[in-house]
Computed example of a mutant assay.
Amino acid sequence: DAVAGMHPALRSRIKGYGYEIYMKDTMDDTEENKKKLVRFIAQEVAKDKKIPHFDKSGVEEILREARRRAGRKGHFTLILRDLGGLVRVGGDIARAEGAKYTTSEHVIKAKAMAKSVEQQMADEYLEQKKDYKLFTTEGFEIGKVNGLAVVGDSGVMLPIIAEVTPAQSREEGKVIATGRLQEIAQEAVQNVSAVFKKFTGKDISTKDIHIQFVGTHEGVEGDSASISVATAVISSLENIPVDQSVAMTGSLSVRGDVLPVGGITPM
């Protein structure tokens, strides 16, 4: 009963975990559904009564954003509350500029402004990390990679640092990872060690590989950081600088294949 009486703006943020799922959040990318979204844009303009109508480029940009927000290939998002907000902000920008129609340029500007509560929280999270220099976005560094992660519904930076040292144990080296890793993340780090042995061509049994997930106070789960971990470690082993303006995500199999991961849209 409590969920049924909940405000739609709050209810739409429920992702499951024991709660009832009220409706699908995506639909197929078909001509019929495309026409429905075009009609939705026109309805939002009509309801607002002040913003100008969208030209073809503006409509195409909204459709492109609907595909991106779906997070699935060949689908449109059905979270129309957020999409309607984008339509209205884009229209407001066009109206403020005195434009006859809302174009793709207005929609692109709106995307930088019309952010969800979750995205605003993620932006604040990133700004706080910048204050403490937890990650850099310029220059080149050895053994340091900017990975990507998801906090709530928003993507954030996940700095990963690797250092290779002589093994402390006489038997063999170890892969030592820190940063509140959960079960799947720990297994992913172990899988990466197999890739090191295959592709570096070096005997790393006499070395300890230290991997640090920086600033992960919330913990790390999933295997999407595998490619970032592998890059950081190989960079440290081979003394190869990594471009800090590049962020990466992707799962890595024990054979070295890069596999798809979830959460790409917010990342």
Rank of each mutant, 00 (worst) to 15 (best):
Asp48Glu: 02
Val38Arg: 05
Ala194Met: 11
Gln43Tyr: 08
Leu63Val: 01
Val150Lys: 04
Val145Asp: 04
Pro260Glu: 04
Lys197His: 04
Phe135Gly: 00
Lys207Thr: 08
Gln190Asp: 12
Thr231Val: 06
Ser228Asn: 09
Gln168His: 14
Asp223Gln: 08
Glu187Leu: 07
Ile21Gln: 08
Thr30Phe: 15
Leu252Val: 09
Gly5Tyr: 11
Gln186Tyr: 06
Asn146Trp: 06
Lys133Pro: 00
Ile161Arg: 07
Arg88Thr: 01
Asn239Lys: 12
Glu171Leu: 14
His217Phe: 15
Val246Leu: 15
Pro52Glu: 03
Asp223Ser: 15
Met6Arg: 06
Pro241Tyr: 06
Lys207His: 14
Lys207Trp: 10
Lys56Glu: 09
Lys207Leu: 11
Ala112Arg: 06
Glu218His: 09
Met6Phe: 13
Gln186Met: 12
Phe199Tyr: 15
Asp223Arg: 00
Lys111Asp: 01
Lys198Ile: 09
Lys198Cys: 08
Pro166Gln: 02
Lys129Val: 02
Thr102Trp: 05
Asp92Ile: 05
Ser251Met: 13
Gly84Trp: 01
Gln168Met: 07
Thr265Cys: 02
Lys47Gln: 12
Ser205His: 02
Gly5Leu: 11
Arg69Trp: 03
Glu20Met: 10
Ser116Gly: 13
Gly139Trp: 02
Ala232Gly: 07
Ser193Lys: 03
Gln212Ser: 13
Gln190Tyr: 12
Gly179Gln: 02
Glu187Gly: 06
Thr26Leu: 10
Leu134Val: 05
Ser251Leu: 02
Ala230Pro: 04
Ala42Val: 03
Asp203Tyr: 01
Pro159Val: 09
Pro8Asn: 14
Val220Arg: 00
Glu105Asn: 13
Arg88Lys: 10
Ala230Phe: 07
Val189His: 04
